[in-house]
Lab assay of single mutants.
Amino acid sequence: DTINITLPDGKTLTLTVTPEFTVKELAEEIARRLGLSPEDIKDTHNGKTLDPSLTLAEYGITPGSTITLEIK
């Protein structure tokens, strides 16, 4: 299953994830792909900052969802 990550420059990154991924694991994968530190990444969905300890499923993030990435 894939989700879309909207980057600060407007580009989109597509990642393969499972509903059990935590937001922290997602940030780590994004950081790895972009050459950043996971601590520099802030993920938001529907205007809410995502708690790193919760899973994508707990936020109702499903395949095809879009998450907005902010760099701290």
Rank of each mutant, 00 (worst) to 15 (best):
Thr6Ile: 15
Gly10Asn: 06
Thr6Gly: 07
Asn46Gly: 09
Ile3Lys: 00
Thr66Arg: 03
Leu69Met: 08
Glu28Val: 07
Ser37Ile: 11
Thr55Arg: 05
Tyr59Gly: 04
Thr44Glu: 09
Pro19Met: 08
Gly10Val: 01
Thr49Tyr: 15
Thr44Tyr: 08
Thr62Ala: 08
His45Leu: 15
Thr68Glu: 11
Ala27Pro: 00
Leu50Asn: 03
Leu56Arg: 00
Thr12Pro: 03
Lys24Asp: 02
Glu29Asp: 05
Thr66Ser: 09
Ile61Cys: 06
Asp43Ala: 15
Thr66Phe: 07
Asp1Gly: 14
Ile30Asp: 00
Asn46Arg: 02
Leu26Gln: 00
Glu39Gly: 15
Ile3Pro: 00
Gly10Met: 04
Thr22Cys: 01
Lys24Tyr: 09
Thr62Leu: 13
Phe21Thr: 15
Ser65Asn: 06
Asp43Pro: 15
Glu25Gln: 14
Leu36Thr: 10
Asp1Arg: 06
Gly10Thr: 02
Thr2Glu: 08
Asp9His: 07
Leu56Pro: 01
Thr62Ser: 08
Ala31Thr: 05
Glu70Leu: 10
Thr12Tyr: 10
Glu29Gln: 07
Lys11Leu: 12
Lys72Met: 12
Thr14Leu: 09
Val17Asp: 00
Asp40Tyr: 15
Thr22Phe: 01
Ile71Leu: 14
Gly60Thr: 02
Thr44Trp: 09
Thr14Tyr: 08
Thr16Phe: 11
Val23Met: 11
Ile5Lys: 00
Thr22Asp: 01
Pro38Lys: 07
Pro38Thr: 12
Glu28Tyr: 07
Thr68Asp: 09
Asn46Tyr: 10
Leu13Ile: 14
Lys11Ile: 12
Asp9Trp: 12
Leu36Cys: 11
Arg33Trp: 14
Glu29Ile: 09
Asn4Lys: 10
Glu20Arg: 06
Glu58Phe: 07
Ala27Leu: 15
Glu29Cys: 06
Glu39Cys: 13
His45Pro: 04
Asp40Lys: 09
Tyr59Cys: 12
Asp43Lys: 14
Gly47Trp: 07
Leu36Met: 12
Leu36Asp: 02
Gly35Cys: 08
Asp1Ile: 15
Ser37Glu: 12
Lys72Pro: 11
Ile67Val: 11
Pro38Tyr: 14
Val17Ala: 03
Thr49Asp: 13
Arg33Gln: 13
Val23Ile: 12
Leu54Lys: 15
Asp51Ala: 03
Val23Gln: 00
Ser37Leu: 11
Asn4Glu: 07
Lys42Cys: 12
Glu70Tyr: 08
Ile30Tyr: 01
Lys42Asn: 08
Leu69Pro: 02
Thr12Val: 12
Ala57Val: 12
Asp51Pro: 05
Thr55Ile: 02
Asp1Thr: 14
Lys24Gln: 12
Pro38Ala: 12
Pro52Cys: 11
Asp40His: 11
Pro19Ala: 07
Ser37Arg: 13
Pro38Leu: 14
Asp1Trp: 13
Arg32Asn: 10
Thr6Gln: 14
Pro52Asp: 12
Leu15Glu: 00
Lys24Glu: 04
Leu69His: 02
Pro19Asn: 06
Pro63Asp: 11
Ile71Glu: 04
Asp51Gln: 04
Thr16Leu: 11
Thr49Glu: 14
Ile30Leu: 11
Tyr59His: 09
Pro38Gly: 07
His45Trp: 15
Val23Tyr: 05
Ile5Val: 13
Asn4Met: 10
Lys72Ser: 13
Pro63Val: 07
Ser53Asn: 14
Thr66Lys: 05
Ser37Thr: 11
Thr49Gln: 11
Asp40Phe: 14
Gly60Phe: 04
Thr14Met: 10
Gly35Glu: 06
Ile5Glu: 00
Ile5Gln: 00
Thr2Met: 08
Ser65Met: 15
Thr55His: 03
Lys11Pro: 06
Lys48Leu: 14
Thr62Trp: 10
Ile5Trp: 01
Leu7Gly: 03
Lys24Val: 04
Leu50Asp: 04
Thr2Val: 10
Gly10Arg: 03
Ser65Lys: 05
Leu69Cys: 12
Val17Trp: 15
Gly10Gln: 04
Ile5Leu: 07
Leu54Tyr: 07
Lys72His: 13
Ile3Leu: 08
Lys11Ser: 13
Tyr59Thr: 07
Thr16Asp: 08
Ser37Gly: 08
Ser37Phe: 10
Ala57Tyr: 14
Thr55Asp: 01
Ile67Trp: 06
Asn46Lys: 03
Asn46Asp: 14
Thr18Pro: 06
Glu20Lys: 09
Glu25Val: 03
Leu26Gly: 00
Leu50Met: 08
Ile41Val: 07
Tyr59Leu: 15
Ala57Ile: 10
